[in-house]
Design a protein around this nucleic acid. Structure first.
Lengths: 155, 155
DNA sequence: TGTTTGGTTCGGAACCATACGAACAAACTA
DNA sequence: TAGTTTGTTCGTATGGTTCCGAACCAAACA
């Protein structure tokens, strides 16, 4: 059981809602939020169950998803059977997903342009081409941005 | 009713699935895909119903959502009561959403850092701070990127 | 007026994801 | 062996979304 102020509890909830909007299931989202807010850097399964009020089943599957996507790591302590979970903050997971998304979209748009052919309305085709060009530009530039950030050593 | 090759139909479906993953309901996603693939730049309500196989209700609400989010525009032709719908390709709607998302996340992270206080584990706090710094950097740079693209006049 | 056309809204059905409780398994302990 | 701890898995229930058909409304036209 983790001790949390009411504002801290609210923050966990807010973070939970936010992560849900980015595709996490509710249980995963709350778990991750709690791991970020807790004063302790790692929490046990039982801590999560008791603090969040979810059943063991929900915590179990919620953790599994978080681990599958590399968002949470797990370790054991010598002499203890319990496992302890810790949030992993990849600095740019969001950017990677954004780039992957854009890249897929760009491929799709280009395939679409080809399928429309020359008899189709030219204005829509031109819009599609402009979008595709912009997405390519963006992909290249985002890569440069990340390199620049990493070179600065601030991250 | 719009005439489509089988590959074109498949593309509409692929685009539909893609847009669903970005949060559109299925009907909106298919409508938007069809508007992009159709040789005609604008389609009537009846075209959408007949081509997609959705009921009128689904098309109606699907269109509403697309219009609410500025993804589709509508106009009438002189002497016709029917309305015609056209896809709007904002070149960077995705970037705007991404920036809004990051900005909200950054606010949330900073609030979280403040709520954790000084007694909490320092490593997690440092990770949160690094993430927040990166998000700020990204926001500024994305703005610059867009300006650069618009200055080039390619979009 | 009455009728047709074009589209919206409502009620119920179907579907999907997720949560819970309970049964289960695996690893220690006594 | 019997019992405790630490989770996982399974079946069922529930909540939320979206669809369809039908009723409805508003505009144009006869």
């Amino acid at each position: 059981m983790v001790k949390l102020d009411p504002p801290q509890r609210e923050w966990v909830e807010a973070m939970g809602l936010f992560l849900e909007r980015s595709g996490f299931p509710p249980s995963s989202a709350r778990i991750y939020g709690l791991l970020l807010m807790s004063a302790e850097p790692e929490l046990s399964f039982e801590d999560l169950v008791a603090t969040l009020g979810f059943g063991k089943a929900a915590v179990s599957t919620g953790l599994r998803r978080l681990q599958e996507t590399n968002r949470v790591s797990e370790r054991t302590r010598p002499g203890e059977r319990r496992r302890y979970f810790r949030a992993r903050l990849g600095p740019d997971a969001g950017v990677d997903r954004f780039r992957a998304f854009n890249s897929a979209l760009c491929d799709l748009l280009e395939k679409g342009i080809a399928l429309r052919g020359s008899r189709a309305d030219a204005e829509i085709t031109a819009d599609l081409e402009a979008s595709a060009r912009f997405l390519r530009f963006l992909d290249v530039e985002l890569d440069g941005l990340r390199a620049r950030w990493e070179a600065n050593g601030d991250g």
